[in-house]
Amino acid sequence: MLKHKAISVGVAFLVCSLLYRNVWADGSGDPAAAKEANGEYYDKAGNPTYKVKPDGSVDWYTFSGYLRYNSNCIVCHGPDGSGSTYAPALKNSLKTLDYGHFLATVAQGRVNVSASTDYVMPSFGKNKNVACFMDDIYVYLRARANGAVGRGRPAKHDPKPPAWTKAEDSCMGPE
């Protein structure tokens, strides 16, 4: 009986996650902003997310993510998460990759070397230009995966929140 129930739960979970994927095409589920703190937005499940206002203006984290992505990640993953000849398009990857796995991959890196591919991603855990801006980059790519932000530099964005500057200073260390 107990075993049977466990399977049902498992099936329900699978259906549920399939549904999520169909509906949201987002590895972390519904990306709608449910909460805001110090200029950073979170979804219902507590994952960082983007906020695009009706006039197209994006939150600061999304904008900062655009800057940091297109400086540190672009050389392999292509402009605006579009992929390149040797690394996947992250605007597609985040349709199935969730926040936790995103953080783990960036921090630890990933190796996929075979006869036909040589995908090697280094660990960015110690690179402050990435590690200090993980949420920013995640939020930006999440917006790209959901089609909420287009190619190129977002035209308008919220101002830099004081809390963000404080966090940047403490994470990046003395100039």
Partner: peptide
């Protein structure tokens, strides 16, 4: 940007 050996040191988008 901040420098880490063996990591990209770019600092512009």
């Amino acid at each position: 940007v901040s420098y880490t050996a063996g990591q990209p040191y770019v600092g512009a988008t």
